[in-house]
Every structure is written in structure tokens, then in C-alpha cells.
Amino acid sequence: MSDVLFIVESALQALTAGLALGSIYGLMCVGLAVIFGIMRVINFAQGEFLMLGMYFAFYALIGTALKDWTGSALGSYVAVIGSAPLFYAAGTLIHRTLMSRVSGIKVLATDDEGQSAQLILTLGLSLVLQNGALILFGSAPRGLGSSLASAAWEVGLPGDAGSIFINQARAIAGVLAVVMTVGLALFMSRTRLGKGLRAAADNPVAATYMGIDVARCHRIAFGLGTALTAVAGALVATYYPLQPYVGLEFVVIMYAGVVLGGMDSIKGAFWGGLLIGVVQQMSALILPTQLQTTAIFVIFLLVVFFMPQGLFGRVSDRA
């Protein structure tokens, strides 16, 4: 095989791996963007929601009889689907008991729009969840042991260009992430409640004049953001080992992806996450593995430098 064909093969291999991984990153970013976009709250506990989603998948599969009925492959996706309603409920509960005290219309009039209190609360929540997980689950890395994590589809390339391998667990997780994101986008753009959430995000006072309950919108947004992030975590768990600090590995990707996409665009957050996944995998072709994160931040700085509003941020409004 010639060198050129080898390069094409490697590039396609990295691209497909990047698209699958990037779609999962995209879903995480969307989880963060829903919360920020609607509530204007930067949630520092985002990585821990992801970690808890992973542990939920682990215990749902290993701790129950689920694995015996379905096998580890199918069972892990049952756990993924199960995590959504559970974490939605958990998110709305956290909003009702904690977040609603430091966010919403009433903090808009305060000096820093409640941001210090939000930072302290979500950062505190992050530490409590991290160390709580350490106490409850222990520090030993675990895995779902899904048979798909080490299985791959081989796709032959035309001619004698060789073939690429697609990791089954990552590919399925990527497809499910895309499905979730498209579902959310349709919900936000087509349904009455979705439009109400956008109105509440755009102008909470005017939304109140319409009869929209902004506090309820924020509760739904926090529930959705928590659920999407936890689902992304459960998807990650199908191919990646989990430990209580695993959220830290992904939280930087989430913030970078959301900033790349433009802070208040849900669509943009997905593309931001996808871009990071692709850059991370493609950069492995030319850079040592240790420098993958560096490549992400080079792209990040370039985008922020040339397009400070992000790839999908609004440039300006007419008054």
C-alpha cells in the first residue's frame, strides 16, 4: 500500500472516531448550554452530573438483575434510557431546593446578578458530589464491561485503500447523542413549552408579562440540562472506565465546546463539542497523544480570537 493511501486511511479512521466521540461531547455541551442559555447560570457541578450518570449506568447494570436479562451490551442502553427521567427529577429537585435561591428574576436586580452565589453554590455542590461519590463508590476504577466496548465494525474503503474500524460502543453512543440533540432542538423550536423556555431565556420580565412562569421554566431547564449530561455520562460509561473524579476529564471539554459554539446557542454547543472530538482525534495523527488537549486549545484560541462571539453566537441586535 502506498504512503498516500495509508495517510487517507488513517485520516478517515481518525475522522470517524472523532465524529463518534465528538457527538458524545456535543451532547455534554448541550446539557451545559441548556442550563446556561435559559438560566444564565454557569453550572460548575456539570462534571459531577456526568460522573453520577456513569455510576447510575454501572449500578443499574451490575447492581440489579438487568445484566442477566439483557446481557451487558443491551443492558447498558436500557440503563442509559433509564437515567434520563431519574436525573430530570433530580435536577428539578436540586433547582427547587438550592438553585432557585440564587437564580431567577429576583437576582437580576442585584449587583452581580447573583453570579457569586451561583458560583459558590455549584462549586460547593460539585465538591460534595465528588467526595460523596468517593465515600459511597470508592476510588477503584470500574467498568460496565459491555462487550461492544472492545468490538468494532470494519468498513472497507473503495479500491485497495484498506479499511477503517469503528468502535461499536462509541459509534452507538454517538448516534444516540445525535438523536437526543435533534430531539431537544425540535422540542425547543417546535413545541409551545420549548418556545416558552426560549422566551423566558430571552427576556424573563417580558415573559412574566405573558403569563409564563419563569421559575418553572428554569426548573425545567435545570432538569433537562442535568438529564442530558447524565445521559451523556451513561453513554460514556459504555466504553470508558469510571471513578469519582472522572467528571474533571470532561468538564474542560464541555466549557470549551459551549464557548466555541457561542455561549447561548444550544445548536452551537453541539457543533462546538463535535469540533473538539474531531480535532482531538485528528491531531493524534501528527501530534503525540499527550498534546491532544493542546490541539483543542489551539483551535479554541483561534476561534475565540477571530470569532469572539463563538461559531453560532449572535453578533448583535438592533435596539
Partner: peptide, 10 residues
């Protein structure tokens, strides 16, 4: 409201 306050992104 004063200043119209339409939902600009909708």
C-alpha cells in the same frame, strides 16, 4: 412594557 421588550431571538 416600556421599551417594547420583544423576544429578540424569537
Amino acid at each position: 412594557p416600556e421599551g417594547r421588550q420583544v423576544f429578540k431571538s424569537l
